[in-house]
């Protein structure tokens, strides 16, 4: 993971809506001008290297520009093209598929695993399992991409395993096949995100009063009933956190695609973040690239807000 969690985390860490404001109200009323000195260094950096380029990005998105010669004003032309040109819209369709693999799949798997761990409360090594399964989160996406390229290679681990089980017919070059390249990239995301979801859910479960489980079991609840009637309802908050983090990660996928497929075969694995880079620095379509970046940002913000909306209010 690179910086993709930054924004999502912010939603969930102590912030202005919480203790911060309440605490500050108790502060003496005097205005402290030295505060500007404290804030200035940080602000200068954010202003110069985030806010200013963000404003510029909006400006550039109204131009057709090759990045080296003079630009041509095209108004909202780039935005129109971005939502109508099939070559550009398909990258958004691909990222929707990735959301399934990065968010839905790991959340479902992690839920089941968390519930299993919960039932086998005295399972030895649960802590170690947690630690290990979380590990992909701290490894650079480039490294993860390199690892999976060799797993998916023609003579890689996946095909070898398939052959051992007599499934030789199923072997293929996973990243070079139109029907499997995108899911193959997606499964890398699943592998990475399971740990994050699992740890989130286990933490959530640890806060559920044990009596609830005991009671359910006295009633003779099996694994699935326990999962749906006790565990799941108590996990709404961690679920929304998991959903936010993983969906944002999916939307911003770049490193893994760059390393594993480069958008290919054909254009079957192009994603918006890859298009931002490729259009700007390979094809010299800087205005268009910037536009895609802005659309992507709006999507990220909208979706995080939406998830927050449907999440329970009380625990945030």
């Amino acid at each position: 993971m690179t910086d993709q969690a930054r924004a999502a985390q912010a939603h969930t860490s102590p912030g202005p809506d919480g203790d911060g404001v309440a605490a500050t109200r108790r502060r003496p009323r005097r205005r402290d001008h030295r505060a500007y000195l404290y804030v200035a260094p940080a602000f200068v950096f954010v202003a110069a290297f985030v806010l200013y380029p963000v404003g510029q990005a909006i400006w550039i998105s109204f131009f057709r520009w090759d990045g080296i010669s003079l630009a041509t004003w095209v108004g909202i032309g780039n935005y129109v093209a971005a939502v109508t040109d099939p070559a550009l819209t398909q990258s958004f369709a691909h990222v929707a598929v990735l959301v399934f693999f990065y968010a839905v799949l790991p959340i479902v798997i992690a839920l089941v695993l968390a519930a299993l761990l919960q039932r086998a409360a005295r399972l030895r090594g649960a802590g170690i399992l947690q630690t290990l399964i979380f590990l992909p989160q701290v490894i650079a996406a480039v490294v993860i991409g390199v690892i999976w390229v060799s797993i998916y290679a023609p003579d890689g681990l996946l095909n070898t395993v398939l052959r051992i089980f007599g499934l030789g017919v199923a072997t293929r070059t996973w990243l070079g096949d139109f029907s499997t390249a995108l899911p193959a990239v997606g499964l890398i995301g699943t592998w990475v995100e399971i740990g994050l979801c699992l740890v989130l859910f286990l933490t959530g479960i640890s806060q559920i009063p044990r009596e609830l489980f005991e009671a359910a079991r006295v009633d003779g609840a099996g694994f699935w009933r326990e999962l749906f009637s006790v565990t799941l309802p108590a996990l709404r908050a961690p679920l929304s956190v998991a959903l936010t983090l993983t969906v944002v990660a999916a939307l911003k996928t770049f490193d893994v695609v760059f390393v594993t497929t480069g958008g290919g075969p054909g254009t079957s694995t192009t994603v918006p973040a890859f298009q931002v880079y490729n259009l700007a620095f390979n094809q010299g379509r800087v205005g268009m690239a910037t536009t895609i970046g802005i659309i992507l940002t709006v999507l990220v913000l909208l979706i995080t807000m939406l998830i927050r909306r449907i999440a329970p209010k009380d625990d945030l």
């Binding site: 924004a7 402290d32 202003a47 510029q56 770049f254 800087v286 970046g293 992507l296």
Partner: peptide
């Protein structure tokens, strides 16, 4: 967190923008 000064909220929200906007949005400029 601990000081009161004019424009505190505005400045704070500007900082938040820096956190919420992904790099992809402004990497080109």
């Amino acid at each position: 967190a601990r000081m009161r000064f004019a424009g505190r909220n505005v400045l704070f929200y500007l900082m938040l923008i820096g956190m919420f906007i992904p790099l992809e949005a402004y990497i080109i400029p």
